[in-house]
Design a protein around this nucleic acid. Structure first.
Lengths: 119, 119
DNA sequence: GCTTGACCTGGAGCGCACTCCAGGTTGGAG
DNA sequence: CTCCAACCTGGAGTGCGCTCCAGGTCAAGC
């Protein structure tokens, strides 16, 4: 299994180095490997976690909830039901958020149309 | 032209009383009327500003930019072009944001599907 | 006339998610 | 061997957008 330096993990995930360190500090990332000199080594699995976190953050999930999800995963296979539930509830919120965004976007376009008609 | 107390403005706009006061304090709202005793009186025009602010906030516009828009409006009719530009640029950002949200929502659904297939 | 609740002010505090900093170590290029 | 860029740590600081608070005023109902 190949390993990547922090810079590469940052580049691939879109998180800053500081954010990666922060995520480890608060226990969102855990078990990140180290070289003998103490430098982080990210595995492909770590990167796929980061991809998931990117998805959840971009859709507005609070960090506390992402951490909850990560903890459930660490707890083992018996938590898959709860993990699924968490994601489903989040997806519902995202749907609601999308509807609101669309509705307000339409208002915005109307407002722009108003200016267009002015000249 | 009818006037409404703060509680009514809050109810109709979805902003809290504190937020309404805050918006006036930072100059986003201006020229809000007062009774002789110093209580705010919101007009229909004030309410339509609040509806616009609601739209812009829900679509992620920073307050500083909303204030810029409000200032342009106060400056007079010669700023309609700039106001339109501001809204158009914002609409473009909203479109981008919507695409990202949709993309990540799809990822989320895939992840949920994965759990569904587990059991 | 008294109470209650909606309102007022200025200013402090909060929650979130980073972001930055000082001061130090390390590993590879030249 | 030297230098530089990338990395490390703990902890402080930032930006945003509110939110809360103390202490006070005022109007309406009982």
């Amino acid at each position: 299994m190949s390993g990547y330096p922090p810079s590469e993990a940052a580049r691939r995930s879109g998180f800053s180095l500081d954010t990666l360190r922060y995520y480890e500090k608060i226990g969102l990332l855990s078990g990140i490997g180290r070289t003998s000199a103490g430098r982080r080594v990210f595995t492909d699995e770590d990167l796929s976690w980061l991809v998931l976190f990117r998805c959840l953050r971009d859709t507005g999930m609070p960090i506390a909830e992402m951490r909850r999800y990560a903890e459930l995963s660490r707890a083992g296979d018996h938590t898959t039901g709860e993990r699924r539930e968490l994601l489903v509830r989040h997806a519902e919120r995202v749907e609601e958020q999308t509807r609101l965004l669309q509705r307000q976007y339409d208002h915005l376009r109307e407002k722009i149309n108003f200016y267009d008609r002015l000249g």
